[in-house]
Design a binder for these strands. Structure first.
Lengths: 232, 232
DNA sequence: CGATCAGTTGACAATACTCAAATACTGTGG
DNA sequence: CCACAGTATTTGAGTATTGTCAACTGATCG
């Protein structure tokens, strides 16, 4: 689903969770103000502090939203997949982007200009509720991230992430990391060296088996305990 | 302002940023569904996972919203001051609170039940925009927090916090911590011992002068550099 | 005035980062 | 299809920041 080829922009918009339940007429309006563009991998979409004249939906590909330290180290806040949105914060507060965004792969993004979009929201309460739900959902995710960063060590954060992927991918005990290990390190708030060491440690200790980017959970019970208590 | 004694609940609601610009009629509806209650200090308001039947506004006092590790260590996400709200996330996504909340002082809180509130939002787009702005603002704050936790060391986080307080309080180079040092440690993602050591270190190094909970910024320039680069 | 709690300081341990180097991949041009 | 360049990943050695545990001081409040 959400695959592009076989649907109009209008239909595609209606299939995203952000615009689920929005009436056809309003979908037509939305697709009227939307601008679609293609991006190569590792292309900057916006930077922190840039004026935000609107926000984006991912139609194809994936985008990372991240913070950058003065020394160039990055912390990924969010990996945005097809059907999801990013950059809304600048539309409703502050008017500038609080983070950086860049493509991870070849991507097609839908841009919705602020002023036109705000007008549509005013006319359509259902749209407002979807937006409130999306922002609330993201706040929830950020709270979990803050919790993990300050209250758990890297092994615990990694364990929690693997279990999360396992659940999302619903492929039994097999899962794919979905990111390069360098990017995963940045998402977990650590560095590639540390991630690499802890992955091997978990493998040696019999928690998981590693084959490149594919992981098999060997001992789910102990992985759960590690994710919960954050200690070996 | 927002002081209680001299205004009705209706007026008070209209003076909060969440309900700024909402028409008198709708304010009357809001005050009709609102329930006000008093709380002593250090009283639990809700816990993570509790079903969220509504959300809160702080009328008097202050409330901390925080995550708790299994070992009982806490990470403060947000200190909520008069006129601000908390717990909205449960109203618009997930229906359970993602964090804990407890009073820091004697407080009076306004509770708005979800179902009634949602009905009012449907009827009033301005209200929806205010909510979107509030949630966006909080997302921005959380992003900064994630950035600080993962990309800065404790001295950098502390320096940034002191500068933030200094700006907010607008009292030249003098500022008050506004929290016990133990609570401040929890807000900065560290422990009291570490905070204590770093405060003395900053004082010895001539960045600040400490008198209990009152801080004087002695060398703003170097404090700014520390906040920016996170290194001594 | 004693008890409790907040804050400070010291000694130590441990997690994670830095720096460096070796190895394994990946994609591209020829 | 191969060779090469540029990344990505892994591993090693050393360091540093921060957390743990413990003891002590000081303040606050019945």
């Amino acid at each position: 689903m959400l695959s592009d080829r076989d649907m109009s922009l209008e239909e595609w918009l209606g299939a995203t969770s952000l615009f689920a339940g929005v009436e056809g007429m309003h979908l037509r309006d939305l697709s009227g103000i939307a601008m679609v563009a293609s991006y190569k991998p590792r292309v900057n979409i916006f930077s922190s502090g840039d004026p935000g004249a609107g926000f984006y939906l991912v139609k194809e590909g994936r985008v990372k939203v991240f913070m950058l330290s003065p020394e160039g180290k990055e912390q990924i806040l969010h990996v945005v997949s097809p059907g999801e949105s990013f950059g809304e914060v600048a539309v409703f507060a502050g008017q500038s982007f609080p983070a950086h965004a860049a493509t991870l792969e070849n991507s097609r993004l839908v841009f919705l200009p602020r002023d036109d979009f705000v007008a549509l929201v005013s006319a359509n309460p259902a749209l407002a509720f979807n937006l409130l739900a999306a922002l609330s959902q993201r706040l929830r995710q950020f709270a979990v991230m803050i919790d993990a960063l300050s209250l758990k060590e890297v092994p615990g954060r990694l364990a929690a992430h693997l279990l999360h992927l396992s659940e999302k991918q619903a492929a039994g005990n097999r899962l794919s990391l979905e990111l390069s290990k360098t990017q995963l390190a940045s998402l977990l708030g650590t560095i590639p060296e540390t991630l690499s060491r802890i992955l091997s440690k978990l493998q040696r200790a019999g928690f998981i088996a590693i084959k490149g980017s594919d992981i098999t959970i060997v001992d789910r019970q102990r992985l759960l305990e590690l994710a919960e208590f954050g200690k070996f």
